Simulated scan of single mutants.
Amino acid sequence: MKTFSEVLLAALISDAVVALLLGLLLKSRTERIAHEIRTQYEQLATTFRSRFSWKEKALAELLAPLHMQLNRTERAFRRYAAGNLYLEARILKEGNEAIRNLLIEKGYLIPLELLPDADRLIEHYDIWLEEFARVRDAAQPDLATPFVFVGPQGYPFPRAAADRFQQLYQQLWREVYGPAS
């Protein structure tokens, strides 16, 4: 017959083995969960960095220059006075070309939902520039030559499309740089 101390020792060894096995199982499970969390975190961080990088690039290369040119041409259009050929030929033409070229050259930075708006703007600027070339380049313009305006003749400025680009510019600016102070 076993003595009490032998039974106690066997129970302690048995409990120690069970505790060791449970500890190893829990450690393995904890390590697996920690690895899964690290992997998920890294995936989320990569996605965040990628989206943030796209936002910065879209702002710097497309939306900020587009914003400035849209504002510039809008101000020029509001100031237009009959016979101001410089305003029309320099500011509006340069601005309209710059906007069209930005949309074409930086199309990869345009979100899918704004592609139809980009198409409308490009079409408008193409028509305006064609008309400008017809009116201004074909003849020697003078103060009597009418302002190049394609709205009533066929394709008015797509204001809503321009506004959506301006809204995206403001939204991304706040997301990247924070609210204006």
Rank of each mutant, 00 (worst) to 15 (best):
E6W: 08
V7F: 12
L8P: 04
S14L: 11
L20E: 00
L21F: 13
L25Y: 01
T30Q: 08
A34N: 07
H35G: 01
E36S: 12
R38M: 13
Q40N: 02
Q40P: 00
L44F: 03
A45G: 01
T46E: 10
T46W: 01
T47N: 12
R49V: 02
R51I: 08
S53H: 07
E56M: 12
E56H: 01
L59W: 06
L62W: 04
L63T: 00
P65N: 04
H67W: 00
H67R: 04
M68V: 10
Q69D: 13
F77Y: 07
R78F: 12
Y80S: 03
Y80A: 02
A82T: 05
N84E: 07
L85G: 05
Y86N: 07
Y86F: 12
L87T: 12
E88I: 01
E88L: 00
R90N: 15
L92A: 04
E94M: 13
G95A: 13
I99P: 06
L103D: 06
I104L: 15
I104K: 12
E105M: 14
G107I: 13
I110T: 13
L112E: 08
L112M: 03
L115P: 00
D117Y: 07
D117I: 11
D119V: 14
L121G: 06
L121N: 09
D126Q: 05
I127N: 05
E130R: 11
F132P: 03
R134G: 04
V135K: 15
D137M: 14
A138R: 13
A139M: 02
L143N: 15
L143E: 15
V150Y: 06
P152D: 01
P152Q: 04
Q153R: 14
P158N: 04
A161I: 10
A162Y: 03
D163K: 15
F165R: 09
Q166N: 14
Q171D: 10
L172A: 00
E175L: 11
G178R: 12
P179D: 15
A180E: 11
A180L: 11
A180F: 02
S181N: 07
S181F: 02
